[in-house]
């Protein structure tokens, strides 16, 4: 299971704080999140800040970043800084 935590405006808008899902890549994870909560569109997820085990997915293999059991993913809606 991969633990996903949400921060930023999407969390407030879509009322999802965290979930646990099975996924082997970030791409698959996005699809699973969409299935659980269709308010989260895959497009929005792609424009989110995605952190896999403390590392931004841009510095890994982005959507192809592999995931394994026990990984922690943080998804922050864009403009979560400022």
């Amino acid at each position: 299971m991969v633990t996903v935590e949400f921060f930023g405006l999407y969390r407030l808008n879509y009322h999802m704080k965290s979930i646990e899902v099975e996924a082997s890549t970030v791409k698959e994870l996005f699809q699973k999140i969409y299935e659980v909560n269709p308010f989260y569109t895959v497009k929005e997820l792609k424009h989110s800040i995605v952190i896999v085990n403390d590392v931004n997915f841009n510095d890994l293999k982005k959507y192809r970043t592999p995931l394994k059991d026990g990984d922690r993913v943080l998804i922050m809606s864009p403009a979560s800084g400022g």
Partner: peptide, 22 residues
């Protein structure tokens, strides 16, 4: 603007905590 029109009104300056942690 995403920051002044959305983030600050909805979450205030406290929006930064998660990013700061990260």
């Amino acid at each position: 603007h995403p920051l002044t029109g959305e983030q600050l009104p909805r979450l205030g300056t406290a929006a930064l905590i998660a990013s700061m942690q990260q």
